[in-house]
Every structure is written in structure tokens, then in C-alpha cells.
């Protein structure tokens, strides 16, 4: 088991910023991280990409982005944001945009898995 702070540092994210935004309450951070880890939005994104539905992918990536930013998971949030912008822009390759999200998400989930039980 690692601490939440250690998890953020392993992910190269700023834990203090998140903690101060959440009124210094670590239990709240843990509560939201747990919800994030159990959330089905990433699976929805994966399904949308394999089904080739850009509209669903955009919506899922947008939701994921919002959650990530609120939790200070900036790297994952940014690659989600890239997908949203690209699809809105009209020129995109869904699989290519999905790849970095997949790798960031898996890394995040793995680290969080060691920190949350």
C-alpha cells in the first residue's frame, strides 16, 4: 500500500493542489478517487472507440476530462481533452487519439490500485 501523496508523485501530479482545493480533506480525495476508479466512463470511451462512434467517444472523453481535472489528474485529463478538441475540429483518427488515453488510464488505474484497497 502506498499513500495518496505517493501515488500522485508517482503519476507526476501535484497532490497539494488537489488537497487544498478539496479543503485539505484527504478522506474526500480518497472518496472521489475511489469513485473515479469504479466509474464506467472509461469503459464507455473504449466501447465507443471500438464501435467507431465519434460522438459517444467525444462525450465520454469530455466527462472523463472533467473528472480528471477536478482530481488533479492532469496528464490523463489532457489526453482526453486532445480527443475532444480533435473530434470537434473534424479531422481525427479515433484509434490514434485513444491510444495515449488508454496508456495514461492504465497507468493511473494501476497506481491508484496500489493506493486504494
Amino acid at each position: 500500500m502506498i499513500t495518496v501523496a505517493e501515488a500522485y508523485s508517482e503519476l507526476n501530479e501535484n497532490y497539494d493542489a488537489v488537497l487544498s482545493r478539496l479543503m485539505g480533506k484527504e478522506n474526500l480525495v480518497i472518496k472521489y478517487l475511489t469513485m473515479f476508479k469504479n466509474d464506467a466512463t472509461y469503459d464507455a470511451l473504449t466501447n465507443a472507440v471500438s464501435a467507431g462512434s465519434a460522438e459517444d467517444a467525444l462525450r465520454a472523453a469530455h466527462s472523463l476530462k472533467g473528472m480528471c481535472f477536478n482530481l488533479g489528474l492532469i496528464s490523463l485529463g489532457t489526453v482526453c481533452s486532445d480527443l475532444v478538441d480533435a473530434v470537434r475540429g473534424g479531422e481525427y483518427d479515433l484509434d490514434q487519439l485513444y491510444a495515449p488515453i488508454k496508456s495514461e488510464y492504465e497507468k493511473t488505474a494501476e497506481v491508484l490500485g496500489r493506493c486504494l484497497d
Binding site: 472521489y32 469513485m35 473515479f36 466509474d39 473528472m67 477536478n70
Partner: peptide, 12 residues
């Protein structure tokens, strides 16, 4: 909000 986590955060 369609995302439960967002609702819970605001509720808190």
C-alpha cells in the same frame, strides 16, 4: 450532472 462523482463532489 450525469456523472455521479461530480454530483457527490458538489453535494459535499
Amino acid at each position: 450532472d450525469d456523472m455521479e462523482m461530480n454530483r457527490v463532489m458538489l453535494r459535499d
